[in-house]
Design a protein around this nucleic acid. Structure first.
Lengths: 245, 245
DNA sequence: GGGCCACGTTGACGCAGATCAAAGCCCCCA
DNA sequence: TGGGGGCTTTGATCTGCGTCAACGTGGCCC
């Protein structure tokens, strides 16, 4: 592992969660000021991950979950024959690693899609603090539960939607998450390749590319490489609610 | 709701978890005898659900999770246009309802596929006990995490596998879960229809039926309606590891 | 015990998306 | 400034699964 560990000095530590601009999205959500101060002791280390590097790999011992401070990740699972399923894309304020709790090993790979920084949350400590701070306990449960619900949404994508519906749902989801982070709802850069989008959506990269082109022609979005502008969000939503077949 | 509530009388209550033959699979797993005795107070009510009835529906207020004592369930999510994605099949010892924690509402439907009985675990109480009993806390986290991992497995099915691989994976998974419950690994009755299997696997019922027929012809299994006998588990596994494409 | 109904099987055909192939574009580095 | 590599686009063709349709089967109720 080439990742740098960054022990937090005291002043930084005080800033860890209580001063973080993601605290309304991330683990501290809903905690009182005093409780957040306690949380600051939970995150004693941050880790920088360069684009293309792994935060963790399937099979490694699970010890901590990670809150993304900056950057962008994908998680994926590999079949023995090399086929890849991207199980999610994660951005600032989201939590990585909850898959590892059950077996005490990570069960997927987490790869940075841009230079990123994560807060390391030792899981034993999180459980300890959770026993003291019931708001933290409850919020952590919510985050795990939402992960399950998110996964159900992906199953829906993969199980019943057609290619263009999947892509529309994907774009709307990204847009909404960027919005929640204070970025433009209509304009953003994709951090992942067409192939990775395809793997996530259960499509081949050519199909993803064609669907982008089609949306472009129809004036729903404009695409230039990784730059996306959503021109007709309502039109994209309509794609989703229109039954075909 | 027509479901019967069964307040447990004192002797039954003593039996709730500590005497349950599922305690090695279910929530009490890994708890010491004394801790299980404490757990007995957590489950004060059981509920009977007849075949075809809902344990809960998407949108209902979330208050409890459910441990399946006997029976068999499916969970599903519906799109506005009526398309259904079955997100899972659950059997004795498994937990239902964790999807509801995040939003305080259930986000899917849980339907009994045979007459069933569940232990009602009020979620606020579970969190309360979890703060006292760290083994319970940890095990609950494991169960949620495993749910996430299970979902990743389904994404893999849906995203990258071909029809016969999906069905083979499905049968092997059922077989393994029946085995863990002390039933035959090679012979069992399906509780769900071809259509429900199809919805789970992202296939149409005709495709499921054809795949069953094909497995039958090839001597991998024998099928008679809902009765399945696995004749060549290794052959099924081979289907999964053989790369095609 | 006969008929109905939900479920399952099988066949013929069609199509969405995969596959194969060939360019194009962008960025980085020499 | 040019060239190489990774990513993307686009076209032509193929195919696995969906769709449509007809028939089979078993269980249940009157």
């Amino acid at each position: 592992m080439h990742a740098k560990l960054i022990p937090l000095s005291v002043p930084e530590l005080r800033e860890a969660c209580s001063q973080c601009n993601l605290r309304e999205l991330c683990l501290p959500m809903g905690l009182s000021g005093g409780e957040i101060d306690q949380l600051d002791h939970l995150v004693e280390v941050r880790r920088r991950i360069q684009r293309g590097q792994h935060l963790y790999r399937g099979g490694e011992v699970f010890e901590a979950i990670y809150a993304i401070k900056t950057g962008f990740f994908k998680t994926d699972v590999l079949l023995e024959d090399g086929r890849e399923q991207v199980t999610g894309f994660q951005m600032a304020g989201e939590i990585l690693g909850m898959d590892g709790i059950g077996s005490e090993k990570h069960t997927c790979n987490a790869v940075a899609l841009e230079d990123s920084e994560v807060c390391v949350i030792p899981f034993a400590d999180l459980e300890l603090y959770s026993r003291e701070i019931s708001a933290l306990q409850h919020h952590f449960h919510k985050m795990m539960s939402r992960e399950i619900v998110r996964d159900h949404g992906v199953m829906m994508l993969l199980g019943v939607m057609r290619a263009e519906e999947r892509l529309a749902a994907f774009l709307l989801n990204l847009s909404q998450r960027f919005t929640a982070r204070g970025y433009s709802p209509t304009e953003f850069n994709l951090r992942m390749t067409r192939g990775e989008i395809g793997s996530y959506l259960g499509l081949k990269l050519e199909t993803v590319s064609r669907a982008f082109s089609r949306f472009n022609e129809e004036g729903l979005i404009s695409v230039h490489q990784k730059h996306i502008q959503i021109r007709d969000a309502a039109g994209l939503k309509k794609l989703l609610s229109e039954r075909r077949t």
